[in-house]
């Protein structure tokens, strides 16, 4: 459903993993540490990006491709092998850069939304009467 498994969404999922950004998320946010939560986060981010207008998507994909280089420039390590401290530091530095601030905020918002609101809803509770 909702374009999750389209070839475009799968390609974006690969681009996300290759960028090392999910590793940064897992190392930085408690909500994204669990592997299933991270998987939901990546899937939702990729599937949402796949639905966005082409110009926006291309801009984001370019930023993701350049992410390992940008990360290395500020931490001197790869996001795939950095320590949790380095991951947080690297993300913090890039969040302050004009080019990356918006991309990181937008993708992290999608990731947190996907992880936290990506499971099936709670079962219905009985109707609550109005309490005045």
């Amino acid at each position: 459903m909702s374009g999750d498994r389209t070839p475009r969404a799968r390609a974006l999922e690969r681009a996300l993993y290759d960028s090392g950004l999910p590793t940064c998320w897992a190392g930085s946010y408690a909500a994204l540490r669990d592997s299933r939560a991270l998987e939901r986060a990546v899937r939702h981010t990729a599937a949402s990006l796949a639905l966005m207008p082409a110009a926006y998507r291309w801009g984001t994909v370019t930023a993701l491709r350049l992410f390992p280089v940008a990360f290395r420039a500020v931490t001197r390590t790869s996001p795939h092998s950095a320590s949790p401290e380095r991951l947080r530091h690297g993300l913090g530095q890039l969040r302050a850069r004009p080019g990356y601030a918006d991309v990181l905020r937008a993708t992290t918002a999608l990731a947190l939304y996907g992880a936290l609101d990506g499971t099936a809803p709670r079962p219905a509770h009985p109707p609550l009467g109005a309490v005045r």
């Binding site: 909500a31 947080r88 601030a101 939304y113 609101d117």
Partner: peptide, 23 residues
């Protein structure tokens, strides 16, 4: 308010602050 909506609204903040607020 949903957990995901809250997380998304906080996404531009420092991860430690996000964790503390989600807690």
């Amino acid at each position: 308010l949903t957990p995901g909506g809250l997380g998304a609204a906080l996404a531009g903040r420092d991860p430690r602050q996000v964790d503390a607020l989600l807690d």
